[in-house]
């Protein structure tokens, strides 16, 4: 399971670098999120822009990831391809999760905050 992360103090972006999030990798995906969950910030954005196919096992893993992160961190999804969004829509999980068409703008850390952080 290839994942790439990018973080600011308030937001962690997790980019899935796989073209399929399916039964073959669902467990690995959930394990990888579990590893990130303990020191995740308030907001975790899962960038699924590379994922061209998701099945019900992949859906279950994303829901599992949301449950692992809650209540400390909120999971949001971004850049879902048509085959992926279809699974969320058909199962009504699009009503439970926050889904962004594009990667939301993540404000850079202001200079004064960076100085305080030192």
């Amino acid at each position: 399971m290839r994942l790439e992360t990018e973080s600011t103090p308030q937001t962690l972006v997790v980019r899935v670098l796989e073209d399929r999030l399916d039964a073959a990798v669902a467990v690995q995906f959930k394990d990888a999120i579990r590893d990130l969950a303990c020191d995740a910030p308030d907001r975790v954005i899962l960038d699924l822009g590379e994922v061209m196919f998701l099945d019900s096992s992949g859906l279950g893993a994303v829901i599992g990831a949301m449950k692992l992160l809650a209540p400390r961190s909120q999971l949001e999804l971004a850049r879902l391809n048509p085959a992926v969004i279809k699974v969320f829509t058909l199962t009504h999980m699009d009503r439970v999760l926050t889904i962004h068409t594009d990667l939301p703008f993540i404000p850079p850390v202001p200079v004064e905050d960076r100085l305080h952080a030192r």
Partner: peptide, 20 residues
């Protein structure tokens, strides 16, 4: 669809296959 009360902690992680 598998039952859900909308609360995150009790969301179903499986049972979607036959429904789909």
């Amino acid at each position: 669809l598998p039952p859900s009360d909308g609360c995150i902690a009790s969301l179903p992680e499986g049972g979607f296959g036959w429904y789909l």
